[in-house]
């Protein structure tokens, strides 16, 4: 049994982030909200975001932060999707060999006790 860490953010099978596309200003956004975070209009359509992108920023969290009970270290960074949207995300650890522009793919990761969230990991055959 897998429980998403929060409802409405992603699907488990296939792994996908649930975003929105604004019918007024044309920006994609995540998470999905009632109003476009860029122009404030309500003309937003639900979309499933790309499950892959390129690495835009990465670091490693080495000490458990407040309110977090999962494993450390874990990767943390930003992946840029083909839509032009930059997603804040966990990354597969270790991140030592990561480089800017590395091809990344979305997957689901267990935080413990069956609670799951999303993370990005290098495409098969690359990195790590």
């Amino acid at each position: 049994m897998h429980t998403p860490v929060h409802e409405g953010l992603f699907t488990l099978d296939p792994p996908a982030l649930l975003g929105a596309l604004c019918g007024e200003c044309g920006h994609h956004s995540f998470p999905r909200l009632a109003h476009c975070p860029y122009c404030g209009c309500e003309n937003v359509d639900p979309v499933t975001l790309s499950d892959h992108g390129t690495l835009w920023g990465w670091t490693e969290v080495t000490t458990a932060p407040p309110g977090y009970e999962g494993v450390v270290p874990f990767g943390f960074g930003v992946v840029e999707l083909p839509e032009g949207l930059r997603i804040v995300t966990r990354l597969t650890s270790p991140t030592a060999t990561y480089e800017y522009g590395l091809a990344m793919r979305l997957q689901i990761v267990d935080l413990g006790d069956g609670v799951v969230t999303w993370e990005f990991t290098p495409e098969t055959g690359r990195g790590v």
């Binding site: 969290v61 999962g70 874990f74 609670v115």
Partner: peptide, 18 residues
């Protein structure tokens, strides 16, 4: 929100690092 801490997405020095 608590879920964001739970998911490891609320780490201030990690943002500074990026």
């Amino acid at each position: 929100e608590p879920w964001r801490e739970q998911a490891g997405l609320a780490v201030t020095p990690a943002y500074f690092a990026l």
